[in-house]
Amino acid sequence: MADPKKTNGVPNSIIDLLVNDIFKKNGINTEEVKGKISNDQKQAIKDLVEDLSQQVDSFLNSSNTKKNSGNDK
């Protein structure tokens, strides 16, 4: 089973920090919002985060591959 404190290599604490910062900047009270989000919206957010995480991982892997192949010359 995956480590519950990490989401695709990104610690949950970082995600929490970023989300809370965005909420504060926009005057959103997290306690009020928690009860108003439908299960469909929650799933859509989870899918979005997973997709973005995969894109970041892909980008990082391609960057590392390019750096490593450049060292072979």
Rank of each mutant, 00 (worst) to 15 (best):
residue 18 L to P: 03
residue 13 S to E: 12
residue 25 K to D: 08
residue 28 I to R: 11
residue 67 K to H: 09
residue 34 K to Y: 03
residue 64 N to W: 06
residue 65 T to E: 15
residue 28 I to E: 12
residue 44 A to Q: 09
residue 71 N to W: 02
residue 5 K to L: 05
residue 46 K to A: 13
residue 35 G to A: 07
residue 14 I to M: 11
residue 50 E to T: 08
residue 57 D to E: 15
residue 35 G to F: 06
residue 62 S to I: 01
residue 57 D to V: 04
residue 34 K to T: 10
residue 7 T to N: 08
residue 49 V to F: 05
residue 17 L to A: 09
residue 46 K to L: 12
residue 70 G to P: 01
residue 26 N to Q: 13
residue 44 A to V: 08
residue 29 N to C: 02
residue 51 D to S: 07
residue 44 A to E: 12
residue 56 V to W: 14
residue 18 L to M: 14
residue 73 K to W: 02
residue 65 T to M: 07
residue 48 L to H: 02
residue 1 M to E: 07
residue 44 A to T: 07
residue 70 G to W: 11
residue 66 K to G: 01
residue 68 N to P: 00
residue 27 G to I: 04
residue 53 S to T: 10
residue 39 N to E: 10
residue 64 N to P: 00
residue 68 N to Q: 14
residue 2 A to K: 10
residue 17 L to Y: 09
residue 6 K to R: 09
residue 27 G to Q: 07
residue 14 I to Y: 10
residue 39 N to L: 03
residue 27 G to L: 03
residue 27 G to K: 11
residue 43 Q to L: 11
residue 45 I to V: 15
residue 68 N to T: 08
residue 55 Q to S: 09
residue 24 K to W: 00
residue 3 D to V: 00
residue 31 E to G: 05
residue 47 D to G: 06
residue 11 P to W: 07
residue 34 K to G: 03
residue 64 N to C: 08
residue 42 K to I: 10
residue 46 K to N: 10
residue 50 E to Q: 10
residue 39 N to S: 07
residue 16 D to P: 00
residue 33 V to E: 02
residue 4 P to H: 05
residue 63 S to T: 15
residue 65 T to D: 15
residue 53 S to W: 03
residue 42 K to H: 05
